[in-house]
């Protein structure tokens, strides 16, 4: 397992949301401002990496029959730690994400990676898998936020970026973002649940289109190579 291949898998060819189609609830629910998206993505990245490392470290000593129960306990532990730390140090993010932070426990990405990857691989490989899968997840969240925010309120980087006194990153979620066109002209519907469903649907469709095309191209190349050989 090399790192470069894992990187490509996590971000593109085996992206958790766009290809494995898991962890969609939060993806659609909280992607209304960039602040939420980045915050959620990083929280999941941290939890996923920690869980991956622990699960693969204890994979040989836990009894097989109750492994899922143990995974759930470990995941719930890390989620609660992140939840408490957010409440203490970034309360704005904790308020904005609300119930979706504890709900990371049942986010299929984490238990899915524990079951499918960390059980069979070394601690090192699991660590990088956590980081790259987490990055892949964050990337999708950020893409959703950017699209929904731009069409919905004509804004970029709501909550995270403030430009009133020069460019500044606000970690308390107060930044107004960069207004690209007046918010009255935005299609407010993109901020509603409708926008979440349709943006994710179109993103997955685009991903399927791209993957199919690249597969087709590869096939043609192989075919051409074969013909040359013959």
């Amino acid at each position: 397992m090399n790192i470069k291949k894992q990187f490509k898998e996590g971000l593109i060819t085996n992206n958790p949301v766009l290809v494995q189609l898991i962890g969609m609830c939060a993806t659609m629910a909280i992607t209304t401002t960039l602040f939420n998206g980045v915050g959620m993505g990083i929280s999941v990245l941290i939890i996923l990496t920690c869980c991956n490392v622990v699960v693969s470290a204890i994979r040989k000593i836990i009894p097989d029959e109750i492994r899922l129960a143990i995974f759930v306990v470990v995941i719930a532990g890390f989620v609660t730690i992140v939840d408490l730390l957010l409440q203490a140090y970034i309360p704005a993010l904790s308020d904005a994400l609300g119930v979706f932070i504890p709900l990371i426990v049942v986010n299929c990405i984490i238990i899915g990676r524990a079951e499918a990857f960390c059980q069979k691989n070394t601690v090192g490989a699991s660590f990088f898998d956590g980081i790259f899968q987490g990055l892949g997840y964050t990337l999708v969240l950020v893409a959703m936020c950017v699209i929904r925010e731009f069409i919905g309120s004509g804004r970029f980087g709501g909550g995270l970026i403030d430009i009133t006194n020069g460019l500044r990153f606000t970690l308390d979620g107060t930044g107004a973002g960069i207004q690209l066109f007046p918010s009255e002209y935005g299609a407010g519907i993109m901020n509603l649940p409708f926008g979440g469903f349709i943006t994710l649907g179109l993103l997955i469709a685009a991903m399927q289109y791209a993957l199919k095309r690249s597969a087709k191209k590869r096939e043609e190349k192989e075919k051409a190579a074969k013909e040359v050989e013959e």
């Binding site: 349709i198 994710l200 649907g201 179109l202 469709a205 399927q208 289109y209």
Partner: peptide, 10 residues
């Protein structure tokens, strides 16, 4: 390319 999940989401 809408086969499967995307058309459901729409």
């Amino acid at each position: 390319c809408f086969e499967g999940f995307p058309i459901c989401l729409v």
